[in-house]
Lab assay of single mutants.
Amino acid sequence: IGSLMYASIFGNVSAIIQRLYSGTARYHTQMLRVREFIRFHQIPNPLRQRLEEYFQHAWSYTNGIDMNAVLKGFPECLQADICLHLNRSLLQHCKPFRGATKGCLRALAMKFKTTHAPPGDTLVHAGDLLTALYFISRGSIEILRGDVVVAILGKNDIFGEPLNLYARPGKSNGDVRALTYCDLHKIHRDDLLEVLDMYPEFSDHFWSSLEITFNLRDTNMIPGSPGSTELEGGFSRQRKRKLSFRRRTDKDTEQPGEVSALGPGRAGAGPSSRGRPGGPWGESPSSGPSSPESSEDEGPGRSSSPLRLVPFSSPRPPGEPPGGEPLMEDCEKSSDTCNPLSGAFSGVSNIFSFWGDSRGRQYQELPRCPAPTPSLLNIPLSSPGRRPRGDVESRLDALQRQLNRLETRLSADMATVLQLLQRQMTLVPPAYSAVTTPGPGPTSTSPLLPVSPLPTLTLDSLSQVSQFMACEELPPGAPELPQEGPTRRLSLPGQLGALTSQPLHRHGSDPG
């Protein structure tokens, strides 16, 4: 009997000691992992102490058991019943959930998450997105703005933001810190809205009876308010094209079509300037034949640059190039080494500058006005007194259609001029006259002087055409309008007829 009692007592005591040691061994194993994590990542002392304290409290609170892992091991129907039991206190005593059906309560219970916070733990920081609604079931918390405590909340209090009033989550206007050990039930806004969409009859009752104890939403960050730039940057990543407008005076608003859609830094370009900076079609017209890549860069430059609305530039004389043409100036200075066709295309550029300027006046029909002061630039669209967005969009579309028509007509005119030049060069190729044979009589004449090349004649003739079109064909006081194609086609051969009437002889060394 004594040996039996000794064996039973010894066996029970050893089993008890073994169970104690097993729990202690698990605790030390998990604690060792936490300390190894702290050492590996070199976490500083204040945060390291918070980690160790939280682990110790969580171990004593749950005995080292992962409740979520245990809950996920059950089937979904059983999980709903378990969640309904775990959140029964909240669902029974909170006013917004009263009167809900059994199915609605089960769906809500599945969406709730339980959070346990030790003292000093910050649940929400200032500036964080308010993605959830919090219900306090135990403990107390404090809300701070800077170093000032603005509120202390306790059991059955609710904090967050009214989700039904805002389409997008706002930002917190303060820090939420736990004063004691707290148990909180939180539900994400997407989950709550999903359940309320499934039960629309409960939705009206819920929003009407929901009383948020403390609204954390920062009202200064609401979209459309003066301080909402940061919020707009976070939620409006896919922005449309940006529009900046110059201020319109009362006198300017009476004149229709007073602005032109141009790229940034293009205030001095012609009315047909689009795409790359520098001139019509993204580059100076005089350098068009020598740089074919300008047409390839036109599309990307047009689509990537934001639109700006600026006044037209001052008018340019008909014979003056659009500006920024070092290529043609070098050719004029060193005409001995340049291609003979460069002079002809220089005359073509003069005609283009004249036609572009006159067509700009035809479509816009307003006098040039000086540029406004820099303080009046970049007025935002949302400022008071601005035109409605639809009106601005319609004006932009009208300007775009005008620019497209202008570009089409300029292309047709350019093709006409090039065809005339090619026809003239085919009839009378460039050549130098040879020395004529002296006559049989004693009164022999001296050799004839060489005839100037055709490109120079073409430049003079085209300059005469531009001056003739600019000065004589337009009646005084009438708006400057571009001439039609047949009129220009008839004027060019008439001007060139006198020049080509002389018999030109080919030089023996000319390969053409």
Score class of each variant (00 low, 15 high):
407 E>R: 04
225 S>W: 09
333 K>A: 12
308 R>Y: 10
235 F>I: 10
419 Q>W: 03
211 E>S: 07
159 F>Q: 02
132 A>D: 12
317 P>A: 07
165 L>F: 06
142 E>P: 01
370 P>R: 08
185 H>E: 06
481 L>K: 11
232 E>T: 12
223 P>I: 10
447 P>D: 08
228 S>M: 10
471 C>V: 10
144 L>A: 07
208 S>V: 06
323 G>M: 13
263 G>P: 08
386 R>P: 13
407 E>T: 08
504 L>G: 09
256 P>E: 12
399 L>R: 02
163 L>I: 12
201 E>P: 03
284 S>I: 08
259 V>H: 13
203 S>Q: 15
358 S>C: 13
437 T>W: 08
201 E>M: 04
400 Q>V: 11
440 P>I: 05
175 D>P: 01
411 S>L: 07
287 S>N: 04
458 T>F: 11
208 S>G: 13
328 M>P: 08
511 P>W: 15
320 E>I: 13
348 V>L: 04
415 A>V: 11
454 L>F: 11
193 L>W: 08
428 V>E: 05
222 I>Q: 09
380 P>K: 10
397 D>C: 15
199 Y>F: 09
270 G>S: 12
396 L>R: 05
196 L>Q: 03
177 R>F: 02
207 W>Q: 11
451 V>W: 11
368 R>M: 10
486 P>G: 04
416 T>D: 11
171 K>W: 09
292 P>W: 13
303 S>P: 06
305 S>M: 12
330 D>A: 11
161 E>Y: 03
392 V>E: 13
173 N>W: 11
344 A>E: 10
314 S>A: 11
443 T>W: 10
271 P>T: 11
510 D>L: 12
314 S>N: 12
262 L>R: 09
415 A>R: 08
207 W>L: 12
153 L>F: 01
407 E>P: 03
236 S>N: 09
443 T>H: 13
169 P>A: 07
268 G>W: 07
302 R>I: 04
196 L>V: 04
501 S>K: 08
403 L>I: 11
364 Q>R: 10
220 N>M: 09
471 C>G: 09
131 T>N: 12
496 L>I: 08
479 P>S: 08
299 G>W: 08
148 V>P: 02
308 R>G: 11
369 C>N: 15
429 P>F: 13
440 P>K: 09
419 Q>C: 06
408 T>N: 03
271 P>C: 09
387 R>A: 10
184 L>K: 01
249 T>D: 07
466 S>N: 12
206 F>Y: 03
189 R>T: 07
418 L>Q: 04
165 L>Q: 09
243 L>F: 10
362 Q>E: 11
254 E>V: 09
422 Q>W: 04
380 P>I: 03
260 S>R: 10
345 F>P: 08
185 H>L: 07
171 K>G: 01
198 M>H: 12
312 F>Y: 11
246 R>V: 11
256 P>M: 11
349 S>W: 04
316 R>S: 09
292 P>D: 09
303 S>G: 07
247 R>G: 13
262 L>H: 10
203 S>V: 11
501 S>F: 07
299 G>K: 15
362 Q>D: 13
473 E>Q: 08
216 L>N: 01
430 P>N: 14
216 L>R: 02
167 A>D: 12
364 Q>L: 05
261 A>G: 11
143 I>Y: 01
152 I>F: 03
334 S>L: 08
481 L>P: 09
438 P>S: 09
324 G>T: 15
416 T>G: 07
250 D>A: 07
216 L>W: 03
463 S>Q: 11
472 E>P: 10
473 E>A: 11
266 R>S: 14
482 P>H: 04
174 G>V: 10
288 G>S: 14
178 A>G: 02
132 A>C: 14
329 E>S: 09
366 L>E: 09
437 T>I: 11
498 A>R: 10
402 Q>S: 12
501 S>P: 11
365 E>P: 09
352 F>M: 07
240 K>E: 11
393 E>R: 11
408 T>D: 09
183 D>Q: 10
423 R>G: 07
245 F>A: 10
272 S>N: 07
253 T>V: 10
396 L>I: 08
285 P>M: 15
197 D>N: 10
205 H>I: 08
188 H>A: 11
414 M>G: 04
463 S>T: 13
196 L>W: 03
471 C>E: 05
168 R>V: 08
213 T>H: 03
240 K>A: 13
342 S>P: 07
207 W>H: 06
289 P>V: 10
210 L>W: 04
388 P>I: 10
389 R>L: 06
154 G>H: 08
134 Y>K: 01
474 L>D: 13
350 N>P: 11
336 D>K: 13
309 L>A: 08
467 Q>R: 12
425 M>C: 13
274 R>I: 03
446 S>Y: 08
145 R>H: 09
386 R>E: 04
393 E>K: 06
257 G>W: 04
269 A>H: 10
151 A>W: 01
274 R>F: 06
306 P>Y: 13
213 T>E: 03
185 H>M: 05
242 K>G: 11
412 A>E: 15
264 P>K: 14
296 E>N: 09
399 L>F: 10
468 F>W: 11
322 P>G: 13
134 Y>F: 07
492 L>H: 11
447 P>E: 06
271 P>Q: 15
311 P>W: 02
344 A>P: 10
149 V>K: 05
179 L>A: 11
247 R>D: 10
512 G>C: 06
498 A>M: 09
428 V>K: 08
289 P>R: 10
313 S>M: 13
